[in-house]
């Protein structure tokens, strides 16, 4: 589904991602872990199409298409979803209005008729139950005055509504208490299907107690320096990032 080869990305002349490779297939959940400043959020932004970064080298294909040929909104309509680390506020625009616009843009792109008000409300009720959010939340303006937890739950709710093929969750767990964390994780698990994939970007192992990944990658200084199964996350939790750093250094030497 997603294939990243030798990706090199910089901002203002400073290299952030330095030759990164990643393969994600349908039905898989990948966790990308790494210390602050290792390039995790940059990777997510580049896949979603944020223009502030310069792609110096490498390629990304999504569903066999060159992703750099696609505008950010096209990527979204083709099923790429980014759960933001810092969701922005859009005053005066209700979540319902925002999502209805988004869904109908996508349907238009796919050559489908727009969803009627009744259909939309039905879908919204269904998904609200699924991801366990308060029914009043959708009448409020997008993220305006939301608590940290509400913002992240709102991201998961939007993900449920938009039914992406590839969801990238950028530090969705940061700043959440344990209850909110469970709600977010449950949402992700319920949305998991054999034909979609999820990339979970996280700093802590904690989230991975609830979302069980098929693969864990350690991102350090712009490169994936170690990949493994879910047990790698636990090992990291116990031994810290320094352990991987040392180990890879030894690897390189030997």
């Amino acid at each position: 589904m997603l294939s990243i080869k030798n990706l090199t990305v910089s901002i203002h002349g400073k290299q952030i991602i330095k030759g990164l490779n990643l393969e994600v297939k349908e039905g898989e959940v990948h966790a990308i872990m790494g210390p602050n400043g290792s390039g995790k959020s940059t990777l997510a932004s580049v896949i979603a199409g944020r223009e502030m970064f310069d792609v110096d080298e490498g390629e990304i294909t999504y569903m066999d298409q060159d992703i750099f040929d696609m505008a950010p909104e096209t990527r979204a309509r083709e099923g790429i979803f980014l759960g933001f680390q810092y969701p922005v506020e859009i005053p005066g625009v209700s979540i319902a209005n925002f999502l209805r616009t988004a869904i109908n843009e996508k349907r238009k792109y796919l050559g489908l008729e727009p969803m009627t008000g009744a259909e939309f409300l039905k879908l919204m009720e269904e998904k609200k139950k699924m991801v366990e959010i308060h029914s009043k939340l959708t009448n409020r303006s997008v993220n305006e005055g939301f608590s940290g937890g509400e913002k992240k739950k709102n991201e998961i709710f939007q993900m449920a509504m938009l039914e992406p093929r590839l969801a990238i969750l950028d530090e969705t767990d940061s700043g959440l208490d344990i209850d909110a964390l469970k709600v977010v994780a449950n949402g992700v698990n319920k949305l998991r299907r054999p034909d979609n994939a999820t990339i979970v970007i996280t700093h802590y192992q904690r989230l991975l107690d609830y979302i069980v990944p098929d693969f864990v990658h350690v991102l350090y200084d712009g490169r994936i320096i170690k990949s493994g199964g879910k047990e790698l996350a636990l090992e990291l939790e116990n031994k810290g990032y320094d352990w991987v750093k040392k180990e890879t250094k030894t690897d390189t030497v030997s």
Partner: peptide, 19 residues
């Protein structure tokens, strides 16, 4: 944020301004 949800630039501005 709007682009990432599949709303194009014109649509995004319209939405934000109306809000």
């Amino acid at each position: 944020y709007c682009l990432q949800r599949g709303i194009d630039m014109e649509g995004a501005i319209g939405l934000i301004v109306n809000g």
